[in-house]
Amino acid sequence: MGCGGLHYGDGWVKLFLRLTMRADAREIHSGVYDLMKANDIRPGMALIVDGQLWQIIKIDHVKPGKGPAFVQTKMKNLQTGSNIEKRFRTAEDVEGVNLDRRSMEYLYSESAGAVFMDLESYDQTTIPKDVLGDSLLYTKPNQEILGLVYNGNVLSIELPAAVDLEITDTPPGVKNATVTNVMKEATLETGLKTRVPDFVNTGEVVRVSTTTGEYMSRVTQK
């Protein structure tokens, strides 16, 4: 093979192919997918946007009366914990990232952050509270949770759609009340503040959405 008067033997060709395959392997290891369309984005997916790693928290497919359709997203930065809302055109190319999910147990919080233990290796990881943001309001000690892993590093956690938490403080309700549209303030065991129906009382367990923080139902204890 020649180029501009220079000739390369088979050895150079084989070396070039090996380096190319190694580069491809590094790209696969880093978890970067081929480009995908914004219309295919789903909650829980991760994207590289402006050089930062983001996880999709919420999406809405919008078809306005005028103008092209778009995807409205709420995203969490897995490196800083900040949240933003961003709009993508439905046909826009986005770069997806493959995040591994690892079963972990939330142990406790300290000044440096929250400590989680890998349930397979028993290794402990501290995630800064700034990165976790409000996630700790939905997480109790000894609770099993999914850790989000990128290139071998635990970056953050993935919450379930809803969690069950005990009410630690709320005003007494009206006796024998069953009406659900009368709401009152309540503080839950993690410090989360929400509104619950008037008939729910301190000491009871309620199910709340981890997306909105809103009351979903009262949990019957077995």
Results as ranks from 00 to 15, higher is better:
Val49Ala: 04
Ile56His: 00
Leu53Met: 14
Tyr122Pro: 01
Thr212His: 01
Val196Ile: 15
Ala161Asp: 10
Thr220Cys: 03
Gly5Thr: 09
Val94Leu: 02
Asn77Val: 06
Gly203Lys: 15
Tyr33Arg: 06
Ser111Thr: 11
Val182Arg: 12
Glu166Ile: 06
Gln55Ser: 03
Glu166Trp: 05
Thr20Pro: 03
Asn176Leu: 08
Asp169Ser: 07
Gly4Val: 06
Asp93Ser: 05
Ala91Pro: 09
Leu107Lys: 12
Arg102Asp: 09
Ile41Tyr: 04
Lys222Pro: 15
Ser121Gly: 14
Thr194Lys: 03
Glu110Thr: 06
Thr139Leu: 15
Val97Thr: 03
Val115Cys: 14
Pro141Val: 05
Lys66Pro: 01
Asp10Lys: 10
Ile84Cys: 03
Gly9Cys: 06
Ile145Ala: 06
Thr180Gly: 09
Lys76Cys: 02
His7Trp: 00
Val115Met: 10
Gln52Pro: 00
Asp130Val: 10
Gly191Asn: 14
Lys74His: 04
Thr178Ser: 14
Val179His: 12
Val154Lys: 00
Thr73Gly: 03
Gly152Pro: 01
Tyr108Glu: 12
Tyr33Cys: 05
Asp24Gln: 13
Lys129Trp: 08
Val205Lys: 06
Gly44Glu: 02
Pro197Ser: 11
Leu107Thr: 07
Asn142Ser: 04
Gly4Pro: 10
Thr80Ile: 15
Thr125Lys: 14
Thr211His: 04
